[in-house]
């Protein structure tokens, strides 16, 4: 095996705020980081739920509407199937607890502990009226597509979830 001093990289773009997709994103990020990779996550649009604090957002009428419907943090993420107005989230939460699978916030904390970098997309923050201070403190910064493309170019694999 070739020996490289620099770590291999992985880039994951997270556009979905669905419970199952966030779960996949954080699991892959954690696994890659544990396998000695430099992992960068870019959160955009609904994916911003993955790094939001538990608070409502928005300034304008529409912004506040989005904030109300999309409000809350990662613990409020609903599964992409069997939503049932929050029932699905509760059911999956119970099932995962019974099987001793870690929850989304624990998995995200593990990713942070393993040095996974997290960036938020500035444009979707503008559109959805989400402020930097409404994101968790561990977010490395706000970024645009240029940084994402640069990271992806240097990555062994890039995923869009």
């Amino acid at each position: 095996m070739e020996q490289k001093t620099e770590k291999k990289k992985a880039t994951i773009i997270v556009i979905s705020g669905d419970f199952d997709k966030l779960f996949a994103a954080f699991t892959i990020a954690t696994g890659a980081a544990a396998t000695n990779m430099d992992v960068t996550l870019f959160f955009t649009f609904w994916g911003l739920r993955g790094i939001k604090k538990n608070m409502t957002t928005g300034k304008s009428l529409f912004g506040r509407m989005v904030g109300l419907i999309e409000g809350g943090d990662v613990t409020k993420a609903n599964p992409s199937k069997y939503g049932f107005l929050g029932m699905g989230r509760w059911m999956f939460g119970k099932m995962m607890k019974n099987k001793n699978v870690s929850g989304l916030s624990e998995l995200r904390q593990l990713a942070i502990d393993l040095g996974v970098k997290m960036y938020s997309c500035i444009t979707s923050m503008e559109v959805m009226e989400i402020d930097k201070k409404e994101l968790i403190d561990e977010v490395s910064g706000v970024a645009g597509v240029a940084l994402m493309v640069e990271e992806a170019q240097n990555s062994e694999f890039s995923l869009f979830i």
Binding site: T27, T30, G31, A34, T35, N36, K99, N100, V101, S102, L110, L114
Partner: peptide, 12 residues
């Protein structure tokens, strides 16, 4: 513990 935790704990 379930995936990815066993592998993560070994790596840590």
């Amino acid at each position: 513990l379930l995936c990815p935790l066993p592998m993560v704990r070994v790596s840590q």
